[in-house]
């Protein structure tokens, strides 16, 4: 009886969910924005929390490879620009965590997932920044790839994410131009610096292509995300757009893309690129990249070293509250 009643309830809620689901999809098809208090399928919520938090974590972990060069920037102007850029990344992390909070995922909980290794972040940040040219390469290639991914997200069906992305994209495109200008300055200054830039391109090119994720035939999440208009283009489409935009920029710098198979298809107008080493991508995602352990250790250390500060801030704010309460009484 009891079980049966429950079964009935489930059946009713299934029908309700099916109806609500259809209405939800109709709103999406109609290009309406979904807001935090609107009903949404659990899968939609989960997909968004996963994607937004991964994006937020990437911003935070991404502060580390760039932060590595703040104290060694070659000029004061570059130091200021890099500080401002890394500060922007932190700001992006904040908006994105806030967007995830509107879906019921707290920042503490998401941070725990990052520190325990449960949550992923962009695999690109597991590569090291070895020379100053890497700072330019990150701006040009990594932010360039991020923009390709993120511009369509400005039209994402979930309102808070879409609005966060509009602001983030403006800042990212500034970073990308700044990175390119840094490399252009180096390439024009001396042969030695140009070699440094070429070396950076050699190391960052393939990992940047991997940023778009697995090829469409292997992508787990693409189809549903496209239907929900969380995603607007497939991984391979975005990767192609990136290659098409970036190859001429590399040539303008006088650099060679480290891909012997790269060629322009005159008919389609697209640059065709060689096979991506997916075993490297899988390996780095799994945790065996050049800096995975170091990045996690740095985040964990910051969290542990800062624990007493956060506890103090909490204790102080509670004292203040209770004093205010006493005064009021």
């Amino acid at each position: 009886m009891y079980t049966q009643a429950l079964n009935n309830l489930e059946a009713v809620s299934d029908i309700e969910d099916a109806e609500r689901g259809a209405a939800f999809q109709a709103r999406i098809d109609n290009e309406e924005k979904i807001e935090p208090n609107d009903w949404m399928p659990e899968g939609y919520r989960k997909t968004l929390v996963r994607q937004i938090s991964q994006h937020a974590h990437s911003e935070i972990v991404g502060m580390l490879p760039e932060g590595n060069w703040i104290t060694r920037a070659p000029t004061l102007k570059r130091k200021a620009a890099l500080l401002a850029k890394v500060q922007d990344e932190g700001g992006h992390g904040l908006y994105l965590y806030s967007a995830a909070e509107t879906l019921g995922a707290s920042r503490e909980e998401l941070n725990e997932q990052l520190l325990s290794g449960k949550a992923k972040y962009s695999s690109i940040f597991n590569y090291p920044t070895l020379t100053w040219a890497d700072i330019g390469a990150i701006g040009w290639l990594v932010d360039g790839a991020a923009i390709m991914n993120q511009i369509p997200l400005c039209r994402c069906s979930f309102g808070p994410y879409s609005r966060a992305m509009i602001r983030i994209c403006k800042e990212e495109s500034f970073h990308q131009r700044q990175g390119y200008e840094l490399l252009l300055t180096m390439c024009r200054s001396s042969e030695e610096q140009k070699e440094m830039v070429q070396d950076a391109l050699n190391r960052w090119w393939w990992p940047s292509l991997m940023m778009f994720g697995p090829s469409d035939k292997d992508s787990q999440h693409s189809a549903q995300s496209m239907a929900w208009k969380i995603k607007r283009f497939t991984n391979d489409e975005l990767r192609q757009k990136f290659v098409d935009a970036t190859v001429p920029q590399a040539h303008y710098l006088g650099l060679t893309i480290p891909d012997a198979d790269l060629k322009l298809n005159e008919e389609t107008g697209h640059w065709e690129y060689g096979e991506i080493d997916w075993s490297e991508f899988a390996r780095v995602l799994k945790g065996d990249g050049p800096c995975n352990k170091q990045r996690m250790k740095a985040r964990q250390k910051a969290h542990e070293d800062g624990a007493w500060v956060r506890e103090a801030a909490l204790a102080y704010s509670e004292k203040k509250k209770s004093r205010r309460g006493q005064q009021a009484a």
Partner: peptide
């Protein structure tokens, strides 16, 4: 600038960079 990425909270990371 040495603090960047290592501060006790994200807000402080941004604050100290500022």
């Amino acid at each position: 600038g040495e603090w960047c990425g290592h501060a006790p909270t994200l807000e402080e990371d941004i604050g100290l960079a500022n």
